[in-house]
Amino acid sequence: MTEILRLAAFTDIPDGGNPAGVVLDATALDGSAMQTIAAEVGYSETAFLTRIGTDRTYDVRYFSPAAEVPFCGHATIATAVALAQRDGAGDLVLSTQAGPVAVRTQAEGEDVTATLTSVTPHVEPPLTDDEVAPALAALHWSADELDPQLAPRIAFAGARHLILAAGTRERLANLDYDFDALKTYMSERDLVTVDLVFRQDATTFHARNPFPVGGVVEDPATGAAAAAFGAYLRALELVAPPVRVTIYQGEDLGRPSLLLVDLDAGDGGIHVTGRAVRIPDQLA
């Protein structure tokens, strides 16, 4: 029988953060079986370790309830914490479809913190108003509700995310979008989530991530989008590295999450830090 662990990532409480399934030994499973398990688990992603090396290296695949995704940040954090709980803290490397992702875990008693370093990120050229308009229409947002200082862009740090910045916290809090229309828009552009953000101050942000292409209305914590957003901030010179950016997500869903994003100078990978805790059976 396949053992499926359940952890909440980017939180220190079981009913916070973003739940992830983790299968530490999926060597006997094919893609179809993984997709079936992910759908049964029902979380936004489940991670499957498909090859276990002798030097703390692993091949991993990520599945949402509806599709495989190239990279998932919160399931990476959950997987690293589960490995640290089983094998002890330290450094490891996860080979993803997007490329190798280094992860460092540190333990203080039973508490484990994990920091992933994304693949080399990039930010795509500016979008035209016509390119952004269908996304705004699906979200039921208008262009004058955006923050004019944070231009819409697509950023990548393992997966592609459209970044849209709300001008007010109230606009971000009021999320009632057209699921099918946004799914179509994203599928046509190979987007994994839409990263909706609000800037509280220079290095503090609130985020929400619709995820209709994965069969999920909204992610309560999205490490891959946090990494992509970090790349966006650095590329557009909206922060001055080295710097730590704090992202609060999941508050509007009742699953508060904390994502810490560290940006180095240059164009290297983005560091995303979070904790993860096991989800008791009664909450799973």
Results as ranks from 00 to 15, higher is better:
D30K: 05
A33T: 11
M34F: 07
Q35Y: 08
Q35C: 03
T36E: 12
A38W: 04
V41S: 03
G42K: 01
G42Q: 02
G42R: 00
Y43K: 05
S44P: 12
S44E: 07
E45V: 02
F48N: 04
L49M: 09
I52D: 11
T54L: 10
T54Y: 02
D55W: 03
Y58F: 15
R61W: 00
Y62F: 14
A66Y: 01
A66C: 00
V69F: 03
F71D: 04
F71I: 00
C72K: 02
C72R: 02
C72I: 03
G73S: 01
H74N: 09
A78D: 10
A78Q: 08
T79V: 03
A80C: 06
A82S: 07
A84Y: 00
R86D: 12
R86Q: 13
G88E: 08
G90N: 07
S95P: 01
Q97D: 11
G99Q: 01
G99W: 02
P100I: 06
V103R: 02
V103Y: 08
T105W: 01
A107M: 08
A107P: 09
E108A: 08
G109R: 05
G109M: 01
D111Y: 09
T113Q: 08
T113F: 02
A114V: 08
A114W: 03
L116N: 06
T117E: 15
S118G: 10
S118T: 12
V119D: 06
T120A: 15
P121E: 03
P121N: 14
H122F: 14
V123N: 12
P125M: 11
D130W: 11
E131L: 10
A133T: 13
P134S: 12
L136A: 11
A138P: 04
A138I: 11
H140A: 15
H140V: 09
S142I: 12
A143Y: 09
A143P: 08
D144T: 09
E145A: 14
L146Y: 15
P148I: 15
Q149S: 14
A151S: 15
A151F: 13
I154C: 14
I154E: 13
I154W: 09
F156C: 10
F156L: 11
G158T: 12
G158F: 01
A159M: 10
R160W: 05
L162G: 06
L164W: 07
L164H: 08
A166Y: 09
A166K: 02
T168N: 11
T168C: 13
R169S: 11
R169K: 05
E170N: 10
R171E: 09
R171K: 13
A173N: 13
